[in-house]
Computed example of a mutant assay.
Amino acid sequence: MIARPQLPPPIGLLPDIDEGQERTTGLPPDALDDWNTRFVAQLAAPRVQRLSLNRDGRTEHLLIDVDACAWAALAQDGDAWTVRQGGPGRLWDDIEEAVTQWRADGAPGLNRFEVTVTPDEQTVTWSRV
């Protein structure tokens, strides 16, 4: 049974990804190609959609939360990666923090995750290895 709609909301117009705050990041977007890492990232930013754009001869990776009007664009700059973020939240900061903590905790498998549901909220945590 489908518990919620499986289609993401329409993206509509893309944000101006040349705007926003830019910094380097130690987490390249291809880290999200790993299913477990992507699961942890989705815990940090559950409504994010991911797409790639070819601009100016390079691929940029865009994460966008349509409902929150927040976005992050990642591009390779030599051997380093940069991220530009805009909107009311910092999507990549949240994802990077969650993935970094999960890895520091030994990258526990999905069998080590625990879901807690109360009348007020739902939380997902993992136990350290």
Rank of each mutant, 00 (worst) to 15 (best):
Q122N: 10
P9C: 03
I17L: 05
G20N: 05
E121G: 06
P29K: 02
T24H: 13
S52G: 04
Q122M: 15
D30M: 05
L91M: 02
T25S: 12
D30E: 12
P28T: 06
G78S: 06
V115Y: 07
T123H: 10
V117D: 08
R112I: 09
E114L: 15
D65C: 02
D18K: 07
D34E: 13
L32F: 01
I2W: 10
Q6L: 15
A73M: 13
L53F: 04
A75V: 14
F113D: 09
D18H: 10
L91E: 01
A98Y: 04
D105G: 09
G87Q: 01
R55Q: 12
T125D: 14
G20T: 05
L51S: 07
A41Q: 03
N36H: 14
L27K: 05
P88Y: 01
I17Y: 03
R23V: 11
P15Q: 02
Q76S: 09
A104E: 14
V66G: 00
N111M: 15
Q49E: 10
D79L: 12
G78A: 05
P88V: 08
R84L: 02
E121K: 13
R90M: 10
E96R: 05
R90G: 03
R90C: 07
L74E: 06
T118M: 08
T123M: 11
P5K: 11
A68G: 01
P5R: 13
E22W: 02
D56C: 03
Q6E: 14
F113N: 11
R38C: 08
N36L: 14
I17W: 01
D77G: 02
M1F: 13
L91N: 00
N54Q: 12
G20E: 04
V115I: 15
T82Y: 03
T25I: 09
R112F: 10
T82Q: 11
V124E: 07
L32V: 00
Q85W: 01
G106R: 09
T59Y: 00
E60N: 05
D30F: 08
E96Y: 02
L13P: 11
H61R: 03
A73P: 02
L43N: 08
Q85R: 00
A98D: 06
S52I: 08
R84M: 03
R38Q: 09
A68M: 06
P88Q: 08
R50W: 09
C69Y: 01
I11H: 00
A44V: 08
T118A: 08
R103A: 12
I11F: 02
N111T: 15
D34C: 03
V66Y: 01
V99L: 03
C69H: 12
D93I: 01
L51R: 09
D16L: 07
I64V: 12
A45D: 01
A3P: 10
T125W: 10
P5T: 13
R23Y: 10
R4L: 13
L27M: 09
I95F: 01
N36T: 12
P46Q: 05
T82A: 02
P15W: 04
T24S: 13
P29F: 00
I11K: 03
T100C: 04
E121L: 12
E114I: 15
T118L: 06
P10N: 02
P8F: 03
Q76P: 01
L27V: 10
D65R: 00
V124S: 06
R90V: 03
L7R: 11
T24C: 11
P119F: 04
